[in-house]
């Protein structure tokens, strides 16, 4: 089997033209997912069952099912409901892009909220007791003690989740989105050269993964500056 270099050089710019969409998917669902994760976290941290139980069920469902299934349910399933078609969300859910963002957001939100919860629970209890003893309120302790320390503890698992999210964006190509993966699939359909195209694509994803890891590495160092020296 021969490896067609010119084909790779031809296709690289085409695939990279999908970078914008890949990053829109990553960043939009990453940010929305983080917000959702935070809401789910707060729901779980309250001692009220009517907040924490729904959050737990939501997390269980979205962590317990394949993201591809979630994407298909949202894209093919939701439009069958008249209520959805008549709701204010229809302009978003009508578009494959909106469906992909929704599915990725719900999925990453569920995962990240568990990461945040783990980080919050890992904060040394003694520090919170010291905060209480000084007269800080529950909210003050959460803002000034728990959060900064939990963020630091949560960075490594969170960076893993961002990397998975980057890779999950490729699933959006299954619902007619022309992100890098979507473009690669059309090129493969035209050229019958899956080997060259998908390997080049894999390398592109790896390069982005590398930069995401580096970026979080710097962030972690910055947040851990007090541990150094």
């Amino acid at each position: 089997m021969s490896f067609d270099i010119t084909l790779i050089l031809d296709s690289l710019p085409k695939m990279l033209s999908g970078i914008g969409l890949t990053f829109q998917l990553l960043i939009l669902s990453g940010v929305l997912g983080l917000l959702l994760a935070f809401v789910l976290l707060l729901m779980r941290l309250t001692e009220k069952w009517y907040f924490s139980v729904p959050a737990q069920v939501f997390i269980y469902v979205f962590r317990g099912t394949p993201i591809l299934v979630q994407i298909f349910i949202i894209y093919y399933g939701l439009p069958q409901f008249e209520a959805i078609r008549e709701s204010i969300f229809w302009p978003i859910l009508r578009e494959p892009f909106g469906c992909a963002i929704l599915a990725l957001t719900l999925n990453t939100g569920a995962y990240v909220s568990e990461i945040l919860r783990g980080a919050v629970l890992a904060v040394d209890r003694g520090l919170l007791e010291a905060g209480s003893a000084l007269g800080l309120s529950r909210n003050q302790r959460f803002i000034y003690i728990t959060s900064p320390l939990a963020i630091r503890l949560g960075i490594p698992p969170y960076s893993n989740d961002v990397i998975s999210l980057l890779k999950s964006t490729a699933l959006a190509s299954t619902i007619t989105i022309f992100d890098m993966m979507g473009i690669a699939r059309t090129i493969v359909a035209e050229t019958y050269a899956p080997y060259e195209i998908f390997i080049s694509l894999a390398i592109i994803y790896m390069i982005f993964t590398f930069f995401i890891q580096k970026g979080f590495g710097y962030f972690e160092n910055f947040m851990s500056r007090h541990v150094k020296k």
Binding site: D124, G126, L127, E129, A130, G131, A133, L134, G135, L136, Q140, Y144, I145, P148, L149, R152, M223, H226, V227
Partner: peptide, 28 residues
């Protein structure tokens, strides 16, 4: 009105000494 000193110090590790001391006077 009641201060407490712990066996394991429990200083806030992410704050400088000065900020450890200023926190409660500012917030509380």
């Amino acid at each position: 009105e009641v201060g407490m000193v712990f066996q394991s110090f429990n200083l806030f590790p992410h704050m400088t000494v000065l900020r450890n001391l200023m926190l409660a006077p500012q917030l509380v």
